[in-house]
């Protein structure tokens, strides 16, 4: 079951074609990382989903309901946290949440209960000063509270951590991780370590389309290069192994760093088994033999060029 489905989305600003046929699906109860360079179109996509911008072409479906620009019906399933959430500085946090709750049409008692729950979730229970005195991080946390007020099935966060210091970032990520399972989270970012920390799925946006998407495990498997790292007992043993004629074949690259070797196999009929066979034939027991996983960063740079 997909909470959000996007098909063939196009959007241009003048001559700048930001989205060029974006297809994307977010399954329910996932924490979905939406990755891309600055200006790749992440914010535009999100604003179209919540109905702030009008798509040129394509459809967006939220919980089975198609989003139509200018109508806000589908918005009741969505909580949205803009990149820099702005509030009325003359209000206090509870007053603000009450305003939001009344707009969302929640009954007064429910608004009070939810406000208390959420303020304690985001650590603002004891703050009763006006929002004008809030720090950036506090505003971001209040932003999450307002987004979650109507118990949305989908929480959309636009770069929730980019503008924050490390402590603020950690707090936001912990809050997002804590609602995992109850609410599907779609959040955009260009900070890959944040994605590794809490996401189970990612999609990479580049040139107006998705260039990569899936669970982190799948993607790493799919992009697993034939690279191996072998550590020997000594640098001499490593050097001896490098000099073997079998490793001189075309398509094999070897890099040595002390007692460790990084070997990449590119030929069609070479795979890891060959290295193991070779080690076994030479009676060498390596200290470590590892299939190298691509890091998100290397994947990201590879797909977006």
């Amino acid at each position: 079951m997909h909470v959000l489905e996007i098909k063939g989305l196009h959007k241009s600003f003048g001559k700048n074609h930001v989205l060029q046929g974006l297809d994307m699906a977010v399954p329910s109860n996932s924490v979905f990382g939406f990755v891309g360079k600055n200006g790749a179109g992440k914010t535009t996509t999100m604003k179209i989903i919540v109905g702030l911008l009008k798509a040129d072409r394509g459809t967006v479906t939220v919980c089975g309901e198609e989003v139509a620009y200018g109508h806000t019906k589908a918005n009741r399933h969505i909580g949205f946290l803009p990149d820099v959430p702005e509030f009325y500085g003359y209000m206090r946090p509870r007053e603000y949440l009450q305003l939001c709750g009344e707009i969302a049409g929640l009954p007064p008692r429910r608004i009070r209960e939810r406000s208390e729950e959420l303020l304690s979730l985001v650590g603002l229970s004891d703050v009763s000063r006006k929002i004008s005195g809030f720090s950036r991080g506090m505003k971001q946390r209040l932003g999450i509270a307002q987004a979650l007020l109507g118990e949305p099935r989908l929480l959309i966060c636009d770069e929730p951590t980019s503008a924050l210091d490390p402590v603020g970032r950690k707090q936001i990520l912990e809050i997002l991780a804590s609602i995992k399972g109850k609410t599907t989270v779609l959040f955009s970012t260009h900070i890959l370590s944040d994605v590794e920390r809490i996401c189970d799925r990612i999609a990479v946006l580049d040139g107006g389309r998705l260039v990569l998407s899936g669970t982190i495990g799948e993607i790493q498997k799919q992009y697993r290069s034939n690279s191996f790292s072998i550590r020997f007992a000594s640098a001499e043993q490593a050097a001896e192994f490098v000099s073997l004629p079998e490793l001189g074949q075309a398509g094999i690259t070897v890099a040595q760093a002390g007692e460790s070797l990084t070997i990449t196999l590119e030929g069609e009929n070479t795979h890891g088994q060959m290295l193991i066979d070779l080690l076994s034939a030479k009676q060498i027991t390596p200290e470590r033999f590892e299939v190298m996983e691509p890091t998100l960063e290397s994947l990201f740079t590879e797909v977006v060029q």
């Binding site: 949205f80 803009p82 305003l99």
Partner: peptide
């Protein structure tokens, strides 16, 4: 310009 309407509009506030 400040973006204070965004939170409310995305909650379904009618224009």
């Amino acid at each position: 310009t400040q973006g204070t309407l965004i939170n409310l509009l995305t909650k379904g506030l009618s224009r």
